[in-house]
Design a protein around this nucleic acid. Structure first.
Lengths: 156, 156
DNA sequence: AGTGAAAAATGGTTGGA
DNA sequence: TCCAACCATTTTTCACT
């Protein structure tokens, strides 16, 4: 279990640092320093503080799946039989690389997942062969994303 | 409009580079070089190629919203009146910082969004005050994520 | 494409105000 | 908390294979 420090205070300078790095993790510290008007060493100190607080949990390169031909994104609500252990189903979902997210949710579905596939045919394959063959899956409801209009992190 | 090069070929070395940087955008080139057995300069060349192809679309620092008290995530399907221009509704959604994703989808909803809020009360406020007051929104269906089990990018 | 080495840029530390 | 100066590491370039 990760320990989370709730007594963190983020001032305006911290916000500027975070905004810059959330947009581009490779932004040079000295460039941020110039923009906020303090020294690079001070930025560095604040970064260590933010990291220690757990607020900064790493950095990632973002790949554009479209370049690899993955153009079909879908959300799928899954009904699981009552008798089935949900964690076991999740373990099976984990083995399917096209499943990018998986949530336990309130409402009529047991779990709710996000799938990234190359095209409709590929999506169909994942749904009918991979997902449906998981023990306990009784039914699924699929919503294909025709276009994503917003994609961002929390506003700092 | 971003131009996407579809004739890109990713070999095993590219994959190793991508996997390392997708996990941690700050992984030093020379460390990757050691792991894959070629020189740092070669890694650097390949990175430029991957960037130029559009496959690498940047890097982000990841912030952990829980540290700031944001513990409630929900997906919301929105029904819009037929008469209403969907892009106008999306423009309004864009102004709500708690809305992190927004998709046009197939199925019974017009748009489908992801919301991050501090708690149920905050979520209720966003739904009842912010979302419902958007012109054309007739009804919403909300699914609260009790727990996220999978969160990853495309498998390289 | 890849290499090795030099040059340029950046990251990280320290001591003192 | 911040700064200035310093040193370590990393990125980037270049001539050559």
């Amino acid at each position: 279990m990760k320990v989370v420090n709730k007594n963190i205070h983020i001032d305006g300078i911290d916000k500027k640092i975070l905004r810059a790095l959330m947009q581009d993790a490779r932004t040079p510290i000295l460039e941020i320093a110039r923009n906020v008007g303090i020294s690079g060493a001070a930025i560095h100190q604040r970064l260590r503080k933010l990291e220690k607080s757990g607020l900064l949990s790493g950095s990632k390169f973002i790949v554009n799946p479209k370049v690899l031909g993955y153009t079909t994104m879908a959300y799928v609500g899954i009904y699981l039989d009552k008798a089935v252990s949900n964690p076991e189903a999740v373990k099976q979902l984990q083995r399917i690389p096209e499943v990018l997210e998986c949530h336990y949710t309130t409402g009529h579905w047991s779990v709710f997942i996000k799938i990234l596939a190359k095209d409709n045919e590929h999506l169909m394959h994942v749904l009918n062969k991979e997902i449906q063959s998981i023990t306990g899956v009784s039914r699924t409801e699929t919503f294909i994303s025709l276009q994503q209009q917003i994609d961002r992190q929390i506003k700092i």
